[in-house]
């Protein structure tokens, strides 16, 4: 989860970064690279894609620092960049799948959500499998990966970005009520799936 960095310190770091201070950038990088990568890895389900997107996010972050307005939290601005990168990536991926006219097997993406189908690969290849501590965590990851894409999007933004539902609604460009409804469904599904994992895994 993204650390709740002191707002004044972050404002100072941003100001120094705007003047091209590499040491200030190193601190920003250290603060946000972990949460951003976790978010990108969970949403793409692919560590290599997530690493490429991470680079894209940080380069755009640096290039657009002057556009950040201090009235909002820096974390929300940073994760908005990341969410936009993921959205573009999902569109490219969907377009590539269509033009290849050979859609992969598995669940069909609904295509209606802001981030359609971006997590489908997570079921097959959870990122950083070596990090999984135990069976329960593996089940949790599988349960998360089994949610609808936009339901997952809400939960991972909240978890890794430490964002409020209002900030998430703003990032996703959705009404707060819609985001809360998705979150409601996602949380209950998650609890239900984790409530009875043994019954499904037994022969």
């Amino acid at each position: 989860m993204a650390p709740r960095a002191d707002r004044d310190i972050v404002a100072q770091l941003v100001s120094q970064c705007r003047r091209g201070d590499p040491q200030a950038f190193e601190q920003v990088f250290a603060l946000y690279r972990g949460p951003l990568y976790a978010y990108l890895a969970r949403t793409t389900g692919d560590r290599h894609e997530a690493e490429d997107l991470l680079q894209d996010v940080f380069v755009r972050l640096v290039e657009n620092l002057d556009r950040y307005e201090e009235s909002g939290r820096f974390e929300a601005w940073v994760f908005r960049i990341a969410a936009n990168r993921v959205r573009d990536w999902a569109r490219r991926r969907k377009h590539a799948e269509r033009t290849a006219s050979a859609p992969p097997g598995g669940r069909e993406n609904d295509g209606d959500g802001p981030l359609p189908g971006v997590l489908d690969k997570a079921v097959e290849a959870p990122p950083e499998g070596r990090m999984i501590a135990g069976e329960q965590i593996r089940q949790l990851e599988t349960a998360m990966a089994g949610l609808e894409a936009d339901e997952r999007q809400v939960l991972v933004l909240r978890h890794y970005g430490d964002l409020s539902f209002r900030e998430i609604a703003d990032i996703m460009g959705s009404p707060l009520g819609t985001v809360l409804a998705k979150s409601h469904r996602a949380l209950l599904k998650l609890r239900d799936k984790m409530d009875r994992p043994a019954a499904r895994s037994d022969p």
Binding site: M1, P22, F25, E26, F29, R33, G34, P35, Y37, A38, A41, R42, R47, A50, E51, L54, Q55, F58, V59, L61, V62, P127, E128, M131, I132, A133, I137, L140, E141, A143, M144, L155, V156, R158, H159, Y160, L187, L190, R191, M194
Partner: peptide
């Protein structure tokens, strides 16, 4: 509470270095 237990995958050291250099 369950969602909060989801582990955070880490980027590889090579990726961290590459991203840092690109951003710098």
């Amino acid at each position: 509470a369950l969602a909060a237990r989801l582990p955070a995958p880490e980027p590889s050291p090579e990726a961290i270095d590459r991203v840092r250099r690109a951003a710098l």
